[in-house]
Design a protein around this nucleic acid. Structure first.
Lengths: 188, 188
DNA sequence: CAGGATATCTAGCGCTGCTATGATGACCTT
DNA sequence: AAGGTCATCATAGCAGCGCTAGATATCCTG
């Protein structure tokens, strides 16, 4: 109520974001296996239990980072689609792979590490849906199966991203695969 | 040398496989997070350090399970391909998704958990290459890009498998996605 | 049967995620 | 202005993790 408690609320929100940012930076520089509650607490200059007053556990922190990631991914895809009106699908696909390779830690949090995020349900976070919709928008509105097309494209890109990242398929042929995928899917 | 040391060698090999089997069963019934070196040791009725006389560490045990999995996957795909000469690609793709959903723990060891397996190199284990070749064999030999086709199909299937398993895309539409993928890729 | 190699276990290290307990200090009331 | 209340936060600790050094028991060899 009072201005004082409002200030505290603000500080608390600020610290909340600080934890998320610290987790992300630590993951991006040293990998997620280096993100321990102790190191994270030290980094934000609070004790360990403070983390648990903001999040239900470590998974929840990872989820928060992932959620930020989904927001950035959606924005990244949107920019790509709008900057290439004639070849939206190809641009969005390339942007997706770009995102995965350039922010590997973030991508891992979003798609590989265990998180608490709910998908394909009513509680699906908006940024997540927004990212998916960028794929859907690449197909003409009169295509009754455009959602299905989007799911397949997304799946293929995700597979290419992780299989290439782990060396299960040669990383240097990514562009050729991208071309094959787009040509086959978008082709008449 | 002696018959005695031969027997010991045999016993050792047997116990080696026992560890792998125990790890796999434990993972399949309770998930990989339940597979700890302590529980595994208890299960094979030996002490913890024995595990380390057979494997370099926990990751190596997971890798051994994964390698078994690649052998089974290759056999599974091969059967599917041979039993449907007219629609090999569709049969192999369906078999792949089947494998992923029916043996989730095994699939996780093969594609998601950290392992020591080398891919796309000279040391690629034969079963792994064999599985990939089943996809390649679905395309005509005169297609100079059949390896590329196989990589894209495999990527798409992997994406579909993991995204659907984690609920990021609706699991009940898997068959429709499969159809779309096969039609688009195999189509003229 | 004695000696030595080999196989195996006990015990423990440093780490993990997580939490019960208690001190600290800012706030509101009288 | 003093006293009591309550939220905030840190200290210290638990159970479990992967892994290993050192002690122990077992069995084969000469």
């Amino acid at each position: 109520m009072s201005a004082i408690s409002e200030r505290r609320e603000r500080e608390r929100a600020h610290r909340h974001q600080l934890i998320i940012t610290a987790a992300r930076e630590l993951a991006e520089t040293e990998g997620w296996e280096a993100v321990t509650t102790r190191r994270l607490a030290e980094r934000v200059e609070y004790s360990q239990p403070v983390l648990y007053s903001h999040f239900d556990g470590k998974d929840a922190i990872v989820s928060a980072v992932a959620l930020d990631g989904f927001g950035e991914l959606a924005a990244h895809l949107r920019r790509a689609r709008q900057s290439a009106p004639g070849a939206a699908l190809r641009a969005v696909c390339r942007a997706y792979l770009e995102f995965a390779t350039e922010r590997p830690a973030l991508y891992q949090a979003m798609f590989i590490l265990p998180t608490n995020l709910k998908f394909a349900s009513a509680e699906t976070p908006p940024p997540l849906r927004a990212g998916f919709d960028e794929f859907v928008s690449c197909f003409p509105p009169d295509n009754a199966r455009r959602e299905l097309f989007a799911e397949v494209v997304w799946s293929a890109l995700h597979g290419m991203a992780v299989l290439s990242d782990s060396g299960r398929i040669p990383p240097d042929k990514q562009e050729e695969r991208l071309d094959l995928l787009v040509t086959r899917i978008a082709g008449t």
